[in-house]
Design a protein around this nucleic acid. Sequence first.
RNA 1: GGCCCGUUGGUGAAGUGGUUGAACACACAUGCCUUUCACGCAUGCAUUCAUGGGUUCAAAUCCCGUACGGGUCACCA
Length: 472
Amino acid sequence: MKTRTRFAPSPTGFMHIGNLRTAIFEYLVAKHEGGDFLLRVEDTDQARKVEGAIDFIYKTLELCNIKIDEGPNNEGECGPYIQSERIDIYKEYADKLVEMGHAYPCFCSEETLEAMRKKADEKHVPFMYDGRCSHLSKDEIKRRIDAGEKYVIRQKMPKDGVSVVKDVVYGNVKVENSVLEDQILLKSDGYPTYNYANVIDDHLMGITHVIRGNEYLSQTPKYNLLYEAFGWEAPVYIHVPMVLGEDGNKLSKRNGDASFMDLYEEGYLPEAIVNYLVLLGWSPDTNQEIWTMDELIAKFDMNRISKSPSSYDIKKLRWFNAKYIRNLSDEDYLKFIRPFFTLDVSSKEEEWVNKLLLTYKDHISYGKEINDIVSIFFNDDIKISKENKEFLESDELIPVVIKTFHDELEKLPSWDIESIAEVINIVKEKTGAKGKLLYMPIRIKVSGVEHGPELPDELYLIGRENVLNRLK
RNA sequence: GGCCCGUUGGUGAAGUGGUUGAACACACAUGCCUUUCACGCAUGCAUUCAUGGGUUCAAAUCCCGUACGGGUCACCA
């Protein structure tokens, strides 16, 4: 049987990196086996639907180099791929279930349920629907439906016994059937619940491996019961641990850069994000850190997914990103960095701007950082920190170095990197200063900070006039 | 609260009963290199695997309890 996996997001117009990681795992499992990766949109909660969310998902996955074999925008044999367009299918199978005695209509109103819940709460016992409607006679059911009463379809759970879920990551997980509630399959508005639709769709779409967050692990016995009722074969389950925020808490929109798009807009390369994420909760049997998508496809082994949750660490993501940026060709780098560079350069030559950006290729760890790091070239108001001021006064040679450098520079007929480097040499010979004592005074005096690109590059970019002024 | 899951350094993690006196990577620290910072390179950073018992000649690795963390108990997914 051909391996098929699916990414099944709710169209909320937002994708946090935990979701993305799940998609990556799903894609990798499918492609490792030479199978298909599908996209299914789970929009059965009409209240949470967001316009344009499908395009957003396509865009995100495309950026990440994850190719969708079948989905809403490129339908295959199993369409529609949007759950709200499959209502008839869910109804049809729900009817079958009722007929077979595995499900029943329930007329209990939300108010009734609320009252029951309250009662259970007072007694300090966990609430569980008591299945009262499962005892209704056929006649009564018909009568009430004909009378236009609202109802839902509930799954009938076994009262005793134990269900075992086989999971690739967590092994065999046992759950008492008695804790399983007669869950709602079809809501009163005719839409299916996730718990129901995912089973129907996964089967109908030929999904062989279900990969999802481990919050579904304890729900899975219910799904298995559904598969059994229909006589279908359950898929291979791969429940993956959560991705936690840096503070160790669950990821949320509040948790800063937890969204893929935020990261992307900050100037993180999708390849780097994917590389980072795939190593969160999964590890290969080698020490390799940098992976291309093709290498991952060849190497990915679902048996090596870890059980424990992992924390998202932006420092490591930055390291990956910096690595990927350095590996870009100069041309690709300029294309990448240019949109993030928002300072006004209208008065500058294109060549100067490119030289400026390229100078920082090896220093930048994400796109937006370019503006901060490059501000020394655009801010005439040089601020020197207290520590650096103290440094400038720490040796009597320093003023000499600065003065000599200034005077030599003034004599310089041309303004290019090589000549500037030579001047530095001349100053070294004339003053006897070298190393830190030679470079730091100039650097601090001219840029205000103690780090930056190669000094000649930096001086060249700052420009003759400015350099001379700042050295005074 | 019931049930389910997890717990190796600041972080990601390797490790599935015996040269592991616990890899590797990020971060951090130090040194080297580059006449400076950075880059790069090198070295250091858990006497110990949440904790207490047990099994065994031998346990991070198996078993039980405890603690802590998370998940789940919706007409949300």
